[in-house]
Every structure is written in C-alpha cells, then in structure tokens.
Nucleic acid binder design. Structure first.
Lengths: 371, 371
DNA sequence: CTGAAAGCGCTTACAG
DNA sequence: CTGAAAGCGCTTACAG
C-alpha cells in the first residue's frame, strides 16, 4: 500500500489533476479516512507546497486568485494542517496551559470553558494543569510541562497566579502568560483583573443601606491578595459611610466551608454580636450558615450573610445567599484572547479591568437588622 | 549561532566526548534553555540516534550496559523526547480528550484530576472538550478535534457517554475510547461502570431501616441511563423489603436544582405525603430542600432526604445531606488507565465494576418517620 | 508572486 | 545488538 501511494504521489504532479481519479473506488476503499496533507493540496492545486503553506499562514505574497483557488480546494476536501507538523517546524504546539489550584470547581470549569471558546477558534487547545503550591516540585513540574509540551502560553488562576516565583520562571522561560488576579501585581498586559476591591465596596454599600451597624467580615488567608483587596475595599467603603469594624469583628479564615463555620463561631459569640457578616466567598458563607443553623439563629432575621463568587452553591442554600457575581466565563475568554495576542506578538489594545461588570446579586440572606 | 551549532554537531562525533566542553561558559551563555535532542544524546553516548530511540521506546534489542549508559546520560542532562516529533513520526499525539457535558462541575474536575494523575506518568496530557449534544455540529466538532489533534484516545463522561452515535463514530474513526457509564452499554473493556443500581439499592435499604413506608423518588431524565438504573435499583430493593412506591410517588426531573424544587412541590402536595424522598442526585436534593424550606417543612423531622454523588454541596446544605459517595477520582484514574491500555494494545485484565466501593454517607437529613 | 532544498526531532523499514 | 537512509507534515531561509 505504501509503495502504491508513493508512486501515485510522484506521478501525480505530471498528470492532469482529476477530482475523481480512475481508481477512485479502490482508493476510497483502501484509505477511507486517510487525512489529506499539504502535498495533496499542492498537487490538486498544481502549485508547490510552499504556496499552500503561504495560504495556510495567510501570507500576503500569494496572488489573490491563487489564494482563493487553494483555499477552495482545502475547504472542499476538508483539509486542516497537522498541528504537530506545524508545531515541529514552528517550534510551537498550539497548546495553552491552564494552571490552577483553586478548589472552587465551578470557577475553574467556567474559566476553562470561557477560555476554550476563544482558543478553539484560533486552532489552540487547552491543557489543564492542577497544581499544589505546597509541593516542593510544583515549579519544576510546570517547567517540565511547558518544555515537554512546548506550551505556547499559559493562563494562571488565583491563588497560584499570585505566585511571583512562578511568574518569574515563566518570564525566564520566555513563555507568554496571563494571570487572573485580584490586584495589579504585574504589567497590565499580563493580567486579567477581577476588581475585588470595588466589588467588596458594593457589599459594604448594600449592608449600609440595609441599616446595619455591627458589621463583621471573614477574610481569606492574608497571603492571598484577594483577601486583602476585599478587606480593603470593604472597610474603606464602610469608613466612607461613617462605619468602622472593630478588630474583633474581622477574622481570618481559609476561604473554606470549615473555616467559615469556625470563624462564624467566633464572631457569633461576641457580645453584642454582629448583625451582618460579609464572608470572604460563598464557601465561607456556607460555613456561616452552618454555624447559624447549629446555634438556632435565623438568616436573615438574626443575621444577614453576604458571600462572594455567586457559585452555584449561593442559590442552593436556604435561604439563598446574597453574593457578588463575577463574570467568570468572560474572564476566561479574555485571558485566552490575551495569551493568544501575546503569542501573536500584538499586545492589543490595553484592556482595562472595567471590561468587567461584577455585580451584587441580592437574595434572601439580606435583611434589615432587628437589634 | 545556527552555523556554530551545526558545526559543533558534525564535528562532535569524531571527537572524544567531554562533559564540559572547552567553550562551556560560552555555550551556557548562548543557549541557556535550549533543549537537548536525540542527536545530542546520541553524540554524548557515542551511539546512533536510533539506539537512543530504542532506549526511549524500551526496545529489548539494546545491550544492557548500553541501555544503562544512555539512560544515565538522558537523566543527567534532563532529556525528554519531544512529544511533537515523536507524535509526527508515530502518527500519534500523546493527547487524550475528555469529552463531557455534565453540568456538575466538581464531578468533572475530579474525574479530570484523577485521569491526569494517571496520564501524566505515561507522558500523556489531557485536552478538555465540553460539548452540547443538542447542537447539530456536536458530532462533527468532536471528529474534527480528534483528527486535527490526532487524539490518541478519548474519555467520555455521562450523560454524553451514553450517546451511541458518538461511540459508533469513534469506532469508525478507530479511536480508542472509554465511556464512564451507569450501565454496561458497551463491551466491558470500553467502560468504567458506576454501579448506580447497587448504590440506589443501598439507599432503599437505608430508608427501610429507618422505618419509612411512604417513600418517593425523583428520577433524572428517562433518557439518561443513570435515571433508569437508580430507579430500578431503588424500587427493586424496596420491593424486596415489601415496600412499593405508588406511581404518583415517582416523578421525573432533570437532575437540576430547579427541577428538584418543582418535583418536590408535586410530591409534597400529595396527601398523605411521603416521609422520605430519594432525590436523583445532590442538585435535585437541594431543590427538595428549597421547597421544604418554602413550605416550612423541617428536614429530617418532617421529611428525610437522600441525594446522590456526595458533591461538595451535600455537606454544605443545612441540615447536611445523606448521599451516595462515588469514588469519582478513582473512576477518572481508571478511565485513564484503560484508554492507555487500549492504546498500548494490551486490553489488560478485565476489570469489573467491583473495583469501586460507592458507599452511603449518612448525615443530618436522615431521620425516622414521625407519621 | 512562486519554488527547490534543507530542517524541525523523532520514527520505521531495511541492512548488517 | 547497532546504524544509515528515508520519511512523518509542515516550515524557514534562500533563490529566482
């Protein structure tokens, strides 16, 4: 079969191109799913493979009619260039890595799908890489992945996106990257900002409008930038409205359900206790719910709770949880567009964080204070 | 720089190998991150690249000491073969696709991470492909992905894994696949079974032991095999214990939160109403919680609720939800191991579904009936 | 605007 | 057990 194939190939350049070769039935029978190569297209179009290559890569140095003709043939036979061969020649992979350690599954999935939508259109695929910053080999594993698979770029999600050692390594490796972050820890073109500070300010305004005075907050780990941003945005906005949180009303959790429950335990044993708790995220808020439940406190009658993320959990809790909704899918899409732009060399218009419109979703967990 | 490099290459075969070439500092300076190729290894080991290739591919036709020597060199310089080049020559990609349309994010993430753990060890990477069966182009997009990226195999998650048209297409494409399924819809070597029937039977036993008589179930879409399996397993197990569900106690939902709430509305308006509801999955159970909440019914005092999946949601609900825990990560791992085995040509031992031990996690939502 | 040659890093026949 | 040649499907210089 190989010999036959080769012979056909060599001969064909000298022979008039026919859409249906004489032995069509045989050929179809022999190689039903055999993919067309650049050589097949070149032969069909009666040009060199280099010219086909130019069409593939949208080089301007092709006569328009030639370009059209070749494009039509590629279209007709359903030709798509082999990414591996292109990659080998280009020293590229058309693969983008998604590096994350965020335990919030819906968050990751949404970013993933948002990014994928944009990547696919340009012939890229997404390779996922969950990681663990506490693991010694965390950095070397990523370096290994990048060099092995020759990733064209990577997208990093918080909190690992805050890791400066990782970003430095990527720079050294000359690997284009985009960091999804809560604060501008990098140059603008390297990040997608989530505006946590402004979002937290919205929460403050909401609670203030409801009339709350004894307000407390459970922040995430202080090592996470988002914790700081949310705390700053929240307390600053409260201060602007003449409200202050006493130190014992601000406690640090781990952004987890369990830590949320533990922190709420602390806060709800204060006397007087807060009438509203801004949990650092929805998971933490769920923890607050649990503690309130165990203590027999009614939400929102005895306690107003606000989360952050609008994960599916928020609407499933009873009462449903007021929370900040982030346009996570869009952030994924934008992150993808940015890496691709960086790979293409065009930095693109300096998109600002204002591209996003996170907004407060008010639900049943919001109420006026009774005390 | 290129010229210098080439010259060095050509010359080196005739020159004694030195670990530290004279111009070491220069070289290091010139190409700090340049990856080693098979040629570099061959040169360092004073063998042909073919022999190095044999070592890479674990061919038995290499003298043991030669093999050891080459392996050590590869180890020392940190050489890993270029997957693209290998792929091009092998006509393979070392890429496995994960095809899913399951809206349960934690489920997907866990499968993903389980699979990744196994794949990485063998040099594979995972390419994720969320899809939408209702889209006309759903099948052709997958075919396109497979042929474009030359995926070596795919893993499919329910419910799209139940799609027989998809499985047929993969067979025609000669693409090794593994389907994660709730029922043996394919040959044993092509699937990872989740034993939904037996799991549902455990739920039945649990409710029976608690003393419930008026038991109802919210099943998923009847078009999903898991719905049928769970219903069959559940009602059969009840029947074995002398209990039957009247037809009006079995309603069909969509495995979603909203449909769960709507179905519960129906069930809880029956007179007498059920004392226990087996929700098809945790999402549905959350819907039941909501309806109970709105109607002022207390769980578990007025109503026992059992879910399925043990997604994070289950433990976050108040009261926490009794549910069936599936070893999702392990299923992902096994699915990965199976595709790799199929790719390698060795079907491996016929693993049976008994590999898994799904079990009931009893939580606060379980109680004895009061009426 | 178009093409022939050499190469990307690996492999498969084919010889020894 | 080992190697020289040709090829995987595409590209980059280099010529015209």
């Amino acid at each position: 079969m190989n010999m036959v194939k080769k012979a056909a190939k060599k001969a064909s350049r000298k022979v008039p191109v026919s859409t249906q070769p004489a032995a069509a039935s045989q050929v179809r029978h022999e190689e039903p799913t055999r993919k067309h190569t650049i050589n097949d297209i070149a032969r069909l179009a009666n040009v060199s493979k280099k010219t086909v290559s130019r069409v593939i890569n949208e080089s301007p140095f092709v006569r328009e009619d030639t370009r059209t003709r070749i494009a039509e043939i590629m279209q007709r036979v359903g030709y798509t260039p082999d990414p591996q061969a292109r990659g080998l020649a280009f020293r590229r992979s058309f693969l983008i890595g998604l590096i994350y350690d965020n335990p919030n599954a819906p968050y990751v999935i949404n970013i993933q799908e948002g990014a994928l939508g944009a990547l696919r259109r340009q012939g890229y695929e997404l390779v996922v890489h969950p990681c663990d910053r506490t693991n010694e080999k965390f950095l070397s594993e990523i370096r290994e992945l990048i060099s092995r698979q020759k990733l064209d770029g990577v997208i990093m999600l918080p909190p690992v996106s805050e890791n400066s050692a990782l970003a430095e390594m990527l720079q050294k490796l000359n690997c284009p990257y985009v960091r999804v972050l809560a604060a501008p820890l990098d140059e603008p073109q390297n990040l997608v900002l989530s505006m946590d500070r402004q979002s937290a300010a919205e929460v403050a305004e909401h609670l203030w409008k409801l009339g709350h005075k004894r307000i407390s907050m459970i922040i995430g780990p202080q090592t996470y930038r988002s914790s700081i941003e949310r705390l700053t945005g929240f307390s600053d906005a409260l201060a602007e409205r003449g409200l202050t949180m006493p130190p014992e009303f601000v406690v640090e959790g781990l952004y987890t359900f369990e830590s949320g429950a533990a922190c709420a335990e602390l806060l709800l044993s204060r006397n007087p206790r807060p009438t509203a708790i801004f949990a650092g995220n929805d998971e933490t808020a769920a923890g607050v719910y649990r503690t309130a439940y165990l203590r027999g406190l009614k939400i929102p009658d005895d306690l107003t709770v606000v989360g952050f993320d609008d994960s599916p959990l928020a609407s499933r809790l009873c009462p449903s949880l007021t929370t900040m909704r982030q346009p996570i899918r869009d952030m994924g899409r934008l992150a993808a567009e940015r890496v691709m732009a960086k790979i293409a060399g065009l930095e693109g218009p300096p998109l600002t964080a204002t591209t996003f419109f996170p907004h407060l979703v008010v639900r049943e967990s919001s109420g006026r204070p009774k005390t």
